[in-house]
Computed example of a mutant assay.
Amino acid sequence: MSFRIRPAHPDDFDSIYEMAKLTGGGFTNLPADKGTLVEKLARSELAFDKVEEVQGSDCFIFVLEDPREKLIRGTCQVFGKVGTSQAFYSYHLSTLTQWSPELGKTFRNQMLTLTTDLEGSSEVGGLFLHPHLRAGGWGMLLARSRYLFIKAHRQRFGDRLLAELRGVMDEAGNSPFWDALAGRFFDMTFPEADGFNAVNGTQFIADLMPKTPIYVSLLPDSAKSVMGQPHPSGRAALRMLQEEGLTFDRYVDIFDGGPTVTAPTDQVRTIREAGEETVTEIGGEPGKTKVLLAAGRLREFRCARAEVRKTGRKGISISQETADLLEIGVGAKVLMVGR
């Protein structure tokens, strides 16, 4: 079974919707709402058709596909710029230190401040791998393909890259962080608010959320213990992000308290290390160097795992299977990075 990454198209709706229903909630970029998914796929179609090489509020959706079996088992997304049509809100965790001479004590209080600091950043998100394919490193292919796409279309993305991770929820889909904080200002459960946000955006946060800082000491232990922590199912995703150089800079999600990680775009490991090569041979002696390869632009973008053999300073030999997955021939230019 050989999978590749390619842009999603409207015919992929059924497969993507089935995966959305498996997320278990709290997955804003992949809501199990048919109308929203249709709109997102249409938006992605427009993004892949855009001619201008400039950063914009584009949403690029990709799928993990076995082209022989016509089987789709994963999806991921890249956003050109967040905070364009609606504000992009986060809580920033800061510390206020105060000294009392009379008591002879220093008090350090953590505060959560509603902020739009991350507006203008590009975002990677919406990564979901079907449970039947959790082994084998396919999640890594999904995750790193996004960085190769950014590298190939660098002018369409900003100088900072972020990723939001789903926060901790109980088995019923309730969020301790939401119940302790935002839920006190909205007459909605967390699943209701999260679903509303996925379909309608975050303007209701601006309308109803208090703008004053929140002292963390006023929150119950149930909320403090999950603040900045990813959902258990997202720990592997966090490790992959950290391996790419994204770090937690004390920004947390306003809904579930999950961590937001960031990095300068050009310092992301895959983007920094990927280099261009030329395919000089197909089907020759088998290669032994394990890499990721990406070829093509926009709608023609393809990414796959491969084993290659160097044939010169900037030349490589690939198998016929790899050539078929990438839909390329001899002379094609590819991006290559080790795996």
Rank of each mutant, 00 (worst) to 15 (best):
E102G: 09
G312N: 09
R144H: 13
E281A: 14
A32I: 04
T116N: 14
T311P: 01
E300T: 14
A306R: 07
P131T: 09
D14K: 10
T280K: 09
K288V: 12
Y147Q: 10
E285I: 08
I316G: 01
K105M: 15
A32W: 01
R272S: 15
F190P: 00
P230G: 03
L241M: 15
S317T: 02
R313M: 13
T247Q: 14
E277P: 00
P286M: 08
S319V: 03
T260V: 14
K333C: 14
T75G: 04
S94D: 13
D194E: 13
F196M: 06
V78N: 04
R6K: 11
F88Q: 05
A323P: 03
S222I: 13
R146G: 02
M19L: 15
L64N: 07
E69H: 10
F301L: 12
L37Y: 06
T113Q: 14
V51E: 15
S94P: 00
T23E: 05
D12V: 07
S85E: 15
R108Y: 07
T95R: 11
G284L: 09
I72M: 06
G234I: 00
I72N: 02
S2M: 10
T260E: 06
S145K: 10
G329N: 08
K151P: 04
K151N: 06
I214K: 09
Y251M: 04
R235F: 05
R302P: 02
Y147P: 00
E300D: 15
E192I: 00
P232C: 09
E39F: 05
I61A: 04
D117S: 10
T202V: 13
K81S: 13
D170P: 01
R134G: 02
E285R: 07
M19K: 03
G195V: 05
E327M: 04
D66P: 06
R43C: 08
E281D: 14
F88K: 03
H153A: 03
F60M: 12
T97L: 12
R146F: 02
T97V: 15
S100H: 14
A182V: 08
T84R: 08
T95H: 08
F204P: 01
A304N: 04
R339D: 15
L103H: 10
G331S: 15
L298S: 14
A306Y: 05
E192W: 00
E102R: 14
A87W: 05
Q320N: 08
F27K: 01
N197F: 12
I16E: 05
G137C: 06
E281P: 01
F157T: 10
A193V: 01
T84A: 10
D14H: 09
F301K: 10
D249V: 05
G35F: 06
R144G: 06
G126S: 01
I254K: 01
F3R: 04
T23M: 03
D66T: 11
A198C: 12
W138R: 02
L127T: 08
L103D: 13
E276P: 01
F157M: 11
Q203L: 07
A47V: 12
W178Q: 02
F177L: 03
K50S: 14
V78D: 02
Q267A: 08
G257M: 09
D187W: 01
